[in-house]
Amino acid sequence: MGALRWSENVTAPDIAIEVEGLSKSFDGREVVHDLSMQVRRGTIYGFLGPNGSGKTTTIRMLCGLLTPDTGRGTCLGYDIITETDRIKRRVGYMTQRFSLYQDLSVRENLEFVARLYDVPDPVGAARAMVERLGLHGREEQLAGSLSGGWKQRLALGACTLPNPQLLLLDEPTAGVDPKARREFWNEIHAMAGEGLTVLVSTHYMDEAERCHEIAYIAYGHLLVHGTVQEVIAQSHLTTYVVGGEGLGDLAARLEQTRGVDMVAPFGTSLHVSGRDAAALERAIAPYRNDRRFTWQQSEPSLEDVFIDLMSRARDNFQDAA
């Protein structure tokens, strides 16, 4: 299998996804705009962005479920417009909405997938997957009656059963409890360790930190991409963490001050950020000597960066979108 995988891709064997200038409109409204991205094989690529930013639409274009209006690209070396049949045979796609058959049991769902992909010994393969997912004893339970976390695991199992080379996971952990989320991510890392490429969309910042690379998309525009460190560095954001009392009052006043681009409460502290370091220094100078507050410069968190990107994107694209 490993040898076959490499030989199939004549062009760039270490690139799993490479797309350029993808755009897609629905009813005259552009929901993905000129999107380009590259995902290397064996990496976990996080796809972040607020609701309605075009993550699902992009993923669907990658696996042949939607035809881009403009742009081109390859997925596992196959053209995303003309070779979708080949892509489908090698990609596991976990949809945002649970899309297994609710009226089939765990076992029957897995066997269906195994048969459809011509997995040798579908019954045995389904049984092995049940064991791997820890669903032993629930084989005969209807998929519709599983809890959210188990549904998620089953869906992941179903799309990895045919041994895909690329996994597209659309918000796989939405609404799942933290423990199940952690196990889910351990599983994904284990699979990536075996050479699988994973593109995963998510809302959760802590999940973004578990990705090798991330991309942030808002209003259909891919705004930044790179490793978490790169994305933070690219933001050119200066951030102060403020501790103390009466922070709500301070936040309200800082928001009105020029030079402060973003004020965000984090638990008992306040993150104050600005794109222009000098301007930020001037803006906060009046409060720095206030005894009630402690000021400490720090690296912006990923969330600071994304909130900043969001607000800038809103100013730039909202009218267009």
């Binding site: 080949r86 045979r89 090698r90 058959y101 089939l104 029957e108 066997e111 269906f112 048969r115 459809l116 992909y117 011509d118 045919p162 041994n163």
Partner: peptide
């Protein structure tokens, strides 16, 4: 995944059968 097979008559039959079994259940 057997690419050549998947395109041919065997693949056609296998996938149709998978669908059939599912529909029956």
């Amino acid at each position: 995944m057997a690419a050549a097979d998947a395109m041919g008559a065997r693949g056609f039959w296998l996938r149709t059968r998978a669908m059939l079994i599912k529909e029956f259940i």
